[in-house]
């Protein structure tokens, strides 16, 4: 499987990374090289093998239903590029 420039643009869009035409041209062979290289996994016989879920046997612990966090608005907003009136602010979205 190899990708074309349209696919590169599509992936970049999905990943929300702006790419110039030049970058697309540069990425195309790089991505195809890497994808071609990982392609070799297809030859492994995985019949009856379950995909790995936890690398070290471990059980999911569950937390008690207690309010133990929050009420830290200043910390939450401390690093915001733009915050106003206790909100994060982003370019206006027209719905």
């Amino acid at each position: 499987m190899s990708v074309d420039t349209a696919t590169v643009r599509h992936i970049a869009r999905l990943a929300r990374i702006a790419v110039s035409d030049g970058e697309v041209e540069a990425l195309l062979p790089e991505l195809n090289n890497i994808l071609g290289w990982v392609e070799q996994l297809q030859e492994v016989d995985v019949a009856g093998v379950e995909p790995m879920t936890a690398v070290i046997p471990n059980r999911q612990r569950l937390r008690a239903d207690e309010v133990s966090d929050g009420a830290i608005r200043e910390q939450v907003l401390a690093n915001a590029p733009v915050a106003e009136h206790g909100f994060f602010a982003v370019p206006k979205v027209i719905e």
């Binding site: 990982v38 996994l41 297809q42 492994v44 995985v46 093998v49 379950e50 995909p51």
Partner: peptide, 15 residues
């Protein structure tokens, strides 16, 4: 399936 799931299966084989 072709990539990620296959890789997780091969990972299980490596383990």
């Amino acid at each position: 399936d072709a990539y990620f799931n296959q890789a997780q299966k091969v990972r299980a084989l490596i383990a």
